[in-house]
Deep mutational scan, measured.
Amino acid sequence: LVRYRTISKIPQITLNFVDLKGDPFLASPTSDREIIAPKIKERTHNVTEKVTQVLSLGADVLPEYKLQAPRIHRWTILHYSPFKAVWDWLILLLVIYTAVFTPYSAAFLLKETEEGPPATECGYACQPLAVVDLIVDIMFIVDILINFRTTYVNANEEVVSHPGRIAVHYFKGWFLIDMVAAIPFDLLIFGSGSEELIGLLKTARLLRLVRVARKLDRYSEYGAAVLFLLMCTFALIAHWLACIWYAIGNMEQPHMDSRIGWLHNLGDQIGKPYNSSGLGGPSIKDKYVTALYFTFSSLTSVGFGNVSPNTNSEKIFSICVMLIGSLMYASIFGNVSAIIQRLYSGTARYHTQMLRVREFIRFHQIPNPLRQRLEEYFQHAWSYTNGIDMNAVLKGFPECLQADICLHLNRSLLQHCKPFRGATKGCLRALAMKFKTTHAPPGDTLVHAGDLLTALYFISRGSIEILRGDVVVAILGKNDIFGEPLNLYARPGKSNGDVRALTYCDLHKIHR
């Protein structure tokens, strides 16, 4: 019993810090008490220290592992850092350059016999395009090294910054494609005289377009951006097909006994025919423009016929181009109408809503002055909100995010209106959640004399007048207030005048 009563005193000691020596009952000389009392004092002292730490809000209350900052290894790049964003855009520009100039170089340097010394005699450094290609190869190699040090988000939505895990993730992902696209074939085969082989191998750079397509997928929600990307894709495919079309004609031209190829026909049409040795002929500019003209006309199913396939190889390629053109029509131009419709969806919704308003007016036989006010209010409210119901949009977000959005939407009023000066951010967040926005066209009466005042109004834009009878008592403008002081009276009061809008007004109100 003594032991039980001794232990039962522990909660009292913990909360009230009572010393055991003052209790005459606990001072009985028993061996059990002498053993338990020192333990009680020690526990009391420890609990006292913990309570003191909690009340003082000291940093040592938290466990040590929670006080440590997340460790980022040296030379690790955050995937959302500004440097990584700028670097990704730079790589994107280099990939676009590669997609345009690599097929052009591979096709127009394929057994090209233009006048001038061969590239091997001039030297590697004197070729501007080769120098640019070398810079692109170096940048792609540097990009691989950067990807080995860039964080990523795993399946659990955690940012991984450990170098080993980053390397394994990159090896399992895009490393092989990036490595093949970054191989400097110019340096590996330079001086061997195989410019045709170098041009063909350099087309491996186009593998990076797969990554670019995935990154550009984030802009699919913007109709104008999608339309622009589709047109660029169409032009890029036409450019690639033009390079292939020229390569076919250029390879067949020296081996044909009869002059029936499209390059021969082009030379005869523009007065620059090929001679018996295969030299001469149109310039590279004429060849490229004509090839691009043929691919565009074939892809769009126009086909004027002034550039036509004559050999079997050219006919087979033309059939493939027609098939590609039909697929592009289905996948690209078939979506253009939907994209344009999405661009004008706001206008369509406006006309639909206006039609419903006019049908309501016609069905209920609203008189002319009231009908005009109804239409003007709808037009003004639509121009202010673009038909978007803010309350319906915010309803799907958590309250903390709703408060931040409301604070942002009402920031101008909260910053410049005098009653809100000096208020804490928590108070402003709470008030912003209570605001209701209303609009009024010129001549609209917001409050009639004798109406119950259940709200306090803040003028965000425009001006109003307060009338008693036919006498203008006051004219209020931006950041002015009218209405009933909230919670100042037990019952809502009545208006002693009319409140009429002089201009288009936007008002925020808080109800009782």
Rank of each mutant, 00 (worst) to 15 (best):
A69G: 11
P70H: 15
I72P: 11
T76E: 01
I77A: 01
H79I: 01
H79Q: 02
H79R: 01
P82G: 14
F83H: 15
V86C: 12
V86H: 01
D88W: 01
L92D: 01
L93P: 01
L94V: 10
V95L: 08
Y97P: 01
Y97L: 01
A99D: 01
T102F: 01
S105C: 03
A107M: 03
A107L: 01
E114H: 15
E114V: 13
E115T: 14
G116F: 14
P118K: 15
E121K: 15
G123Q: 01
G123A: 06
G123K: 07
A125H: 04
I135L: 07
I141W: 14
I144G: 01
I146S: 01
N154E: 13
N156G: 13
P163T: 05
R165V: 07
I166K: 01
F171G: 08
G173I: 01
W174E: 01
I177K: 01
A181P: 03
A182Q: 07
I183C: 05
P184Y: 01
F185M: 10
L187R: 14
L187H: 15
I189E: 12
G193H: 11
L200E: 02
R205E: 09
R205W: 01
R208Q: 09
R211Q: 09
A213R: 10
K215L: 03
L216K: 04
L216V: 14
D217N: 09
E221V: 01
Y222P: 12
V226T: 13
A238E: 01
H239K: 01
L241I: 01
C243Q: 01
I244H: 01
Y246Q: 01
Y246L: 01
I248A: 01
G249I: 01
N250F: 04
S258T: 11
R259S: 15
W262N: 01
L263H: 01
N265P: 01
N265G: 01
G267L: 03
K272N: 01
Y274R: 03
Y274F: 03
G280I: 01
G281Q: 01
K285H: 04
D286I: 01
T290E: 01
A291P: 01
A291S: 04
A291Y: 01
Y293P: 01
S298P: 01
T300N: 04
S301F: 06
S301A: 13
G303K: 01
G305H: 01
N306L: 01
P309M: 01
N312F: 01
N312I: 03
E314L: 01
E314W: 01
G325Q: 03
A330M: 05
S337I: 03
I340M: 07
I340Q: 03
Q341N: 04
Q341L: 09
S345G: 05
T347I: 04
A348M: 13
A348H: 06
Y350I: 01
Q353C: 03
V357M: 09
R358M: 04
R358W: 02
E359D: 04
I361T: 03
I361Y: 01
P367C: 05
Q372C: 06
Q372R: 10
E376H: 15
Y377M: 05
A381W: 14
W382K: 05
K395C: 08
F397A: 03
C400A: 10
S412L: 06
L413R: 01
L413K: 01
H416D: 13
R421A: 09
K425D: 13
A430Y: 07
L431A: 02
M433G: 04
T437P: 12
A440W: 04
P441I: 10
P442H: 01
D444Q: 07
H448E: 07
